[in-house]
């Protein structure tokens, strides 16, 4: 299906945000997904044409990133983190339970087209493990039971809220935001979840603070030549590269 004319115009608009238009490709592909529900040949061709690159190059990019889908995605993309920490904290069991409950395998969509289940890699929410993502909104501290309730609610069309964000929109709507066309939900949800605040809370309780601005310290020990800094760089890799740079 060819992309609507408005979409082509928006694709061009994305490309124009950047000093070199090819930089727009990732957001453009997000926009294609928001319109077509996946990466389509028409989407690839439209991007290639606008960016004046080959369709093979676009395809090379579209197949590199895991968020780009080559099969239709359901209304809700449900990701279960099964990277080590979440897996061990229960993510593996959650994922098993959902596969069973939804009767789908990894990266498959339920027959009603509502839910696409996928196990995902670490989503930077380890302090809320086990974590799930619905259309890339955080669903923190899940259990197999809560996960089942969650997907049931999604399928039933009940409103679902992110534990650290707004009410969940559809996957296509989410993709549109990632393309750089904001919706109006930024103000929903809390500033931070409970785990994000534990340290702060303790500090408040203990009356701990950072030193006041006037305090002065001894800044002399700062490594000030490159050689010394490099010695302290964390990886030997950094060192070899610096050596190469100097040589």
């Amino acid at each position: 299906m060819p992309l609507p004319q408005e979409t082509v115009a928006e694709l061009e608009e994305i490309a124009a945000r950047y000093p070199q238009k090819r930089s727009g490709l990732l957001p453009m592909l997000h926009l294609v997904q928001s319109v077509a529900g996946q990466i389509t040949p028409e989407g690839i061709e439209a991007c290639a044409e606008i960016l004046e690159i080959s369709a093979a190059e676009v395809s090379g990019v579209a197949t590199f990133y895991t968020m780009y889908k080559r099969r239709p995605v359901g209304d809700y993309h449900v990701g279960v983190c099964t990277n080590t920490l979440c897996a061990i904290m229960g993510g593996d069991l959650i994922f098993e339970r959902l596969k069973d409950h939804l009767d789908v395998g990894n990266d498959e969509t339920t027959e009603d087209g509502k839910i696409t289940l996928e196990h995902v890699e670490c989503n930077a929410a380890c302090d809320y493990a086990p974590v799930m993502m619905v259309n890339w909104e955080f669903m923190d501290n899940q259990t197999p039971e809560s996960a089942v309730r969650l997907v049931d609610d999604l399928r039933a069309g009940n409103e679902v809220r992110s534990t650290r964000g707004p009410r969940v929109v559809t996957w296509r709507e989410a993709e549109r935001v990632l393309a750089g066309f904001p919706d109006d939900l930024a103000d929903e949800g809390p500033a931070a979840g409970p785990a994000s605040l534990v340290g702060l809370k303790i500090a408040r309780e203990q009356g701990w603070t950072a030193p006041s601005g006037s305090a002065s310290g001894d800044a002399d020990a700062v490594p000030d030549d490159k050689g010394e800094a490099v010695e302290h760089a964390d990886t030997s890799r950094a060192e070899s590269e610096t050596t190469a740079e100097e040589s």
Binding site: A186, D187, A191, A192, S196, L197, G199, L200, K201, I202, A203, R204, Q206, W208, T209, A210, P211
Partner: peptide
């Protein structure tokens, strides 16, 4: 020196801290 030194995290518990 205090054990914890909230600086970057210091306003996270503020009302609508993101605004």
């Amino acid at each position: 020196m205090d054990v914890l030194t909230p600086i970057l995290t210091d306003n996270w518990d503020a009302e609508r801290a993101w605004t």
